[in-house]
């Protein structure tokens, strides 16, 4: 009898001893695999959304860990909590509202997708895995942005050169976005309002429409090259020193972004 108890107690103790892993430092060093594939996170946010600042911080930390030259973030103000009210800033755009669609909450994210649609609408906790997976994908296009900016007329002209890095077959469109960084204004935060909140990478609009324009339709082969130009006049309230051009190329059939590139206006 005693033997049975002893064996059972020993088994239980052994099981307990080998069955608990205590983790002191949870963070794993991470090196993105693959080549030069870049990833675009669209952060659908609002100045009156109390959970948005923390979520933005989380994705910026993710960007910092995975590489700021490979992960880009664009803050798209859209939805009920982005509607201007009193002193809260108005960062709404037609294109952003279109991408946001019928959704009714903030913050929401898309990873390498043009719009929030069923299956690619993510909460902040769900962003990391799709980003890491997207970084490991083969790069189908390379984007080279060249631009001129005329201070007097505030005219911005952009030429995008898309070079195929592999063979593909799709309906390839490119959208050219204007993004303004480090804007200061009111933002609802936990416990009240931060009147000097710094808004990062705010989407200001596109140079060629929400859907962009057709780059190539059908089969493309490695080393094929396509050039597209567009231009816009910068709004007088925008600070050109803090503005960026963000171009992405995507397959119009499923809205999946294949590559993104960024360049400062000045």
């Amino acid at each position: 009898m005693k033997k049975i108890f002893s064996v059972f107690a020993l088994t239980a103790l052994l099981l307990a001893a080998v069955s608990c892993d205590k983790i002191d430092n949870p963070h794993k060093p991470y090196t993105p695999t693959g080549g030069n594939k870049t990833v675009l996170i669209k952060d659908f946010t609002g100045a009156r959304c109390v959970n948005c600042p923390d979520a933005a911080e989380t994705v910026h930390e993710l960007q910092h860990r995975l590489g700021e030259d490979r992960v880009f973030i664009m803050s798209v103000h859209a939805g009920f909590l982005a509607q201007p009210l009193g002193q809260f800033p108005d960062f709404l755009t037609e294109e952003g509202t279109l991408w946001y669609g019928d959704n009714n909450s903030n913050p929401l994210f898309s990873v390498d997708h043009v719009a929030l649609t069923e299956g690619n609408t993510l909460n902040v906790d769900q962003v990391d895995m799709p980003v890491s997976e997207a970084l490991a994908e083969p790069q189908l296009f390379d984007i080279n942005i060249t631009n001129t900016y005329d201070e007097a007329s505030r005219r911005l002209s952009v030429e995008n050169l898309f070079n195929a890095k592999g063979d593909g077959d799709g309906e390839y469109y490119a959208t050219v976005c204007l993004v303004e960084d480090s804007l200061v204004g009111w933002q609802t935060v936990s416990g009240g309002v931060n009147k000097e909140y710094v808004f990062r990478n705010v989407f200001r609009g596109t140079l060629n429409g929400a859907d962009g324009e057709l780059v190539a339709n059908g089969a493309v082969f490695v080393d094929d090259s396509f050039a597209k130009t567009c231009s816009m006049e910068l709004d007088s309230t925008y600070n050109a020193d803090q503005c960026y051009i963000m171009t992405y190329i995507y397959d119009h059939q499923d809205g999946k972004i294949l590559q993104t590139a960024v360049k400062k206006v000045k």
């Binding site: 099981l15 069955s19 892993d21 430092n25 963070h27």
Partner: peptide, 23 residues
């Protein structure tokens, strides 16, 4: 009681404990 699960760590970002015990 003592119960444990053993599941391999598949996370890219975090060290996930492969043995989690509950008593």
């Amino acid at each position: 009681s003592f119960v444990s699960k053993k599941q391999a760590d598949q996370s890219l970002f975090y060290y996930i404990p492969e043995n989690v015990g509950a008593a």
